[in-house]
């Protein structure tokens, strides 16, 4: 009961103090708002880049061409063998007739050429289209498939896929680096601003000590105050994220520049980004305050 009373008073006092030191609070809140906006933009950008990379990677397919004249039983057996490989996500069989029809639809020239062949003389091969789980191991998987009997040739865009994977790896790492750096810089900026505002209130801390407040008595209201500043500072970035991104998505129809660049759907994406912003604001506000108060306490 006593602890509860003290805590509720601390919360009340920290609320009051946010408003009584309005200009100082405003400085902290503005700083939090601006830095979190930058964090929001960078998080949205990097998550989208990541999304595009994932979509492109998902498109990569291994095509295994089968020996000519392979029996239906062997095809079934081969399919189950491929499905059992550990990096294989899905296997789709495409008969040479399907391939022929597909190609004839795709190009007029090809149609003319193909019409010269009868059903029995189809020069094409039956094939499997295989998606993998981990694109970095696509080379090994392709080799494993090639070893199976009944498989003639395996193609997956050798060389190009490896390059793509490497480029995406770099892009992803750069994104993570930028976001982490920004968050660290944000934390530093916010805690510094709070430090300055608390420096101007060191007299208050001194008086609290003189009338018998323990270190904990002094710290808790400031920590709550930091928490409130963090929450208040993240309101605008959160709204900007939710409404700004949704508007951008709707304006562009979810696509930027070309079909390849697909944006992440706003729901529940913006909610997650907003929660991240709020959590950063709260934690940085609290710890910024705590560190700043500790400097003025005699421990």
């Amino acid at each position: 009961m006593k602890v509860f009373r003290i805590l509720s008073r601390d919360i009340r006092d920290s609320f009051k103090s946010v408003f009584r030191n309005f200009s100082l609070s405003l400085a902290s809140i503005t700083c939090i708002t601006i830095t979190l906006l930058v964090v929001s933009i960078s998080v949205i950008l990097s998550l989208n880049v990541n999304n595009i990379a994932t979509l492109i990677e998902k498109d990569v397919t291994i095509v295994a061409f089968l020996d000519k004249g392979i029996e239906e039983v062997d095809i079934k057996l081969l399919q189950s063998q491929i499905e059992r490989l550990d990096n294989v996500e899905s296997v789709v069989f495409q008969s040479k007739e399907d391939t022929k029809n597909e190609m004839m639809e795709a190009s007029e020239d090809f149609k003319n050429v193909m019409e010269n062949y009868t059903e029995d003389e189809n020069p094409l091969q039956d094939s499997f289209k295989i998606k993998v789980v981990d694109i970095e191991r696509i080379g090994n998987t392709a080799n494993e498939i090639k070893e199976l009997s009944g498989v003639d040739v395996v193609k997956y865009g050798e060389g190009m896929v490896e390059q793509l994977v490497n480029v995406f790896k770099v892009v992803r790492n750069v994104c993570i680096f930028i976001v982490v750096t920004l968050i660290v810089v944000t934390a530093f900026l916010i805690s510094n601003t709070i430090k300055i505002t608390i420096y101007s209130r060191r007299k208050e801390i001194e008086i609290m000590r003189l009338v018998g407040a323990s270190n904990l008595n002094i710290k808790i209201p400031f920590v709550f105050e930091g928490l409130f500043l963090g929450i208040l500072g993240s309101i605008i970035p959160m709204l900007a994220t939710i409404y700004g991104y949704t508007a951008l998505y709707e304006q562009s129809g979810g696509i930027l520049f070309s079909q390849i660049i697909q944006l992440v759907e706003p729901m529940p994406f913006v909610v997650w980004v907003s929660i991240i912003l709020l959590v950063i604001g709260m934690i940085v506000g609290m710890f910024g305050s705590l560190l700043a108060v500790r400097k003025h306490l005699k421990i």
């Binding site: 000590r209 003189l210 018998g212 323990s214 270190n215 008595n217 005699k298 421990i299």
Partner: peptide, 14 residues
């Protein structure tokens, strides 16, 4: 100790 000073301060007024 510094961190225990509050115990004294609560017993006296300044």
């Amino acid at each position: 100790r510094n961190r225990k000073v509050y115990k004294l301060r609560r017993k006296l007024g300044v």
